[in-house]
Simulated assay, not measured.
Amino acid sequence: MASRHKEKLFSEYPDVVTVKQMCSMLGGISMKTAYRLLEDGTIRYLKIGKSFKIPKVYIIEYLVGEF
């Protein structure tokens, strides 16, 4: 996928999203599935305190197979 297309993907979301926002970005997956993707390392994330923060670029990498 060209770099310019990646910039437009999910442009309505902030650069760092919550797990709930990630669920929406991935087509409405369940929170359980989202946490499984994070905890098994499929999608990279940052953990700040007890909160998972997911840079949007990590979700895009997952979707285009660049992880």
Rank of each mutant, 00 (worst) to 15 (best):
K6T: 12
V57H: 07
K53S: 13
H5N: 05
L63R: 12
M31V: 08
E39F: 03
Q21V: 00
G49L: 10
I59T: 00
Y62W: 05
E61H: 11
E61F: 09
Q21W: 00
K8N: 11
I48R: 05
S51N: 12
Y62T: 04
A2F: 08
V57P: 02
Y35T: 11
K32F: 10
S24R: 10
P55R: 07
E12D: 12
P55Y: 03
I54S: 06
L38G: 04
M25E: 05
V64G: 02
K47D: 08
S11G: 08
R4C: 08
I59V: 05
F67W: 06
T18W: 01
M1Q: 01
G49W: 08
A2C: 05
M31R: 14
F52K: 10
G49T: 13
L63D: 07
I48M: 05
E39N: 10
S3R: 14
E61D: 15
V64Q: 10
M25P: 09
V17K: 06
K56C: 00
E66V: 09
T18V: 06
Y35V: 08
G27K: 11
L46C: 10
Y58K: 15
V19G: 02
K56P: 00
S3W: 09
S3A: 09
I29S: 12
M31W: 08
E12P: 00
S51P: 08
P55V: 13
R4M: 12
A2H: 11
I29H: 15
Y45M: 13
E12K: 14
K56R: 07
C23M: 12
G65E: 02
L9K: 14
T18H: 01
S3L: 13
L46K: 14
G49H: 10
E61Y: 06
H5C: 01
K53H: 15
K47S: 09
L46T: 10
R4Q: 12
D40G: 03
I59H: 00
M31T: 11
C23V: 06
I59D: 00
G41Q: 03
C23P: 06
E66D: 15
K6Y: 15
R36Y: 06
S24G: 07
E12S: 09
I60W: 15
G27Q: 05
P55E: 02
A34I: 09
M22L: 04
M1I: 02
I59E: 00
L38F: 01
L46H: 10
K56V: 01
P14K: 15
K47G: 07
G41I: 04
G28V: 01
I54A: 06
Q21H: 00
V16A: 09
L63K: 14
I48S: 03
L9I: 07
Y13Q: 03
Y58L: 06
P14R: 13
L37V: 05
K20Y: 11
T33N: 11
F10M: 04
I60P: 10
E7S: 12
D40Y: 05
D40A: 08
S51E: 14
Y13R: 01
E61V: 02
Y45A: 08
V17F: 03
Y62V: 03
Y13F: 13
T42N: 10
S30D: 06
V16E: 08
V19R: 05
H5S: 04
G49M: 10
R36F: 01
V16G: 04
I29P: 11
K20S: 13
I29G: 13
E66P: 04
M22N: 04
K20P: 02
L46R: 13
S30M: 04
